[in-house]
C-alpha cells in the first residue's frame, strides 16, 4: 500500500533518486517496482489507473513499458463533429399523423441515435439514424395505403347504397 504512494505520487525526481543507486539495469522507474513483491497490489487497483490518466505517460516515458496495462483508447464522451440527424420530428409526425406502430419503432431508433452518439458509438448512431428514417418512411407509406383502403371502403358503401336504392321497389 505504501509502495503505491511512493510509485505514483512522487514523480521522476524522487524515484530516480531512489532507484538508480540500487538497480543500474534501466534508467526508467517502472523497471524498479516490477520485481518488488509489494508492487502488484497497487497495480491491480483501479484507483491509480483512473486518476493520473493524462499524467501517467509522461511519468513513464515509454508506452511499451506497460504491456496491456491500458486499453488503447477508451471513448467516454460524444465524438467530435456534428451528430447524425435522428429524424425524431419525422418519427413523431409519422406516429401522430399515421398512428401506426411503425412510427413508434421509428421513435425508438431516433432515441437510440442520441444514446449511441453520446456514448461514442458513431457507427451504431449512424445505423440507428438510417433505421429511424426507414421506419418513418414505411409508416407514411402504410398510412397512404390505409387511407386509400378507407377511401375504397367508403366508395364501396356508397356504391352499395346506390345499388340497394336503385333495386328497392
Amino acid at each position: 500500500m505504501r509502495a503505491c504512494g511512493s510509485v505514483v505520487v512522487p514523480l521522476p525526481p524522487i524515484l530516480y533518486g531512489e532507484v538508480t543507486p540500487m538497480s543500474t539495469d534501466g534508467p526508467y522507474p517502472p523497471s524498479a517496482p516490477e520485481p518488488d513483491p509489494g508492487a502488484p497490489a497497487p497495480y491491480g487497483q483501479p484507483a491509480p489507473y483512473g486518476q493520473p490518466g493524462p499524467a501517467q505517460p509522461p511519468a513513464y516515458q515509454q508506452p511499451g513499458a506497460y504491456p496491456g496495462g491500458y486499453p488503447a483508447q477508451p471513448v467516454y464522451g460524444a465524438p467530435a463533429g456534428p451528430p447524425p440527424d435522428n429524424f425524431l420530428v419525422w418519427a413523431i409526425l409519422s406516429t401522430v399523423l399515421c398512428c401506426l406502430p411503425l412510427g413508434i419503432v421509428s421513435i425508438v431508433y431516433a432515441a437510440q441515435v442520441n444514446d449511441k452518439w453520446l456514448r461514442g458509438d458513431v457507427a451504431g448512431a449512424t445505423e440507428s439514424a438510417r433505421k429511424a428514417k426507414q421506419f418513418a418512411i414505411w409508416s407514411a407509406g402504410v398510412q397512404a395505403v390505409v387511407l386509400v383502403l378507407i377511401g375504397i371502403f367508403y366508395v364501396g358503401i356508397f356504391a352499395l347504397a346506390l345499388g340497394t336504392a336503385s333495386t328497392a321497389p
Partner: peptide, 13 residues
C-alpha cells in the same frame, strides 16, 4: 453539434 440527452428522447417516447 448538440444532441438532445437520450433520457429526454426516451421520456418523450
Amino acid at each position: 453539434t448538440w444532441a438532445a440527452p437520450p433520457w429526454a428522447v426516451w421520456s418523450l417516447l
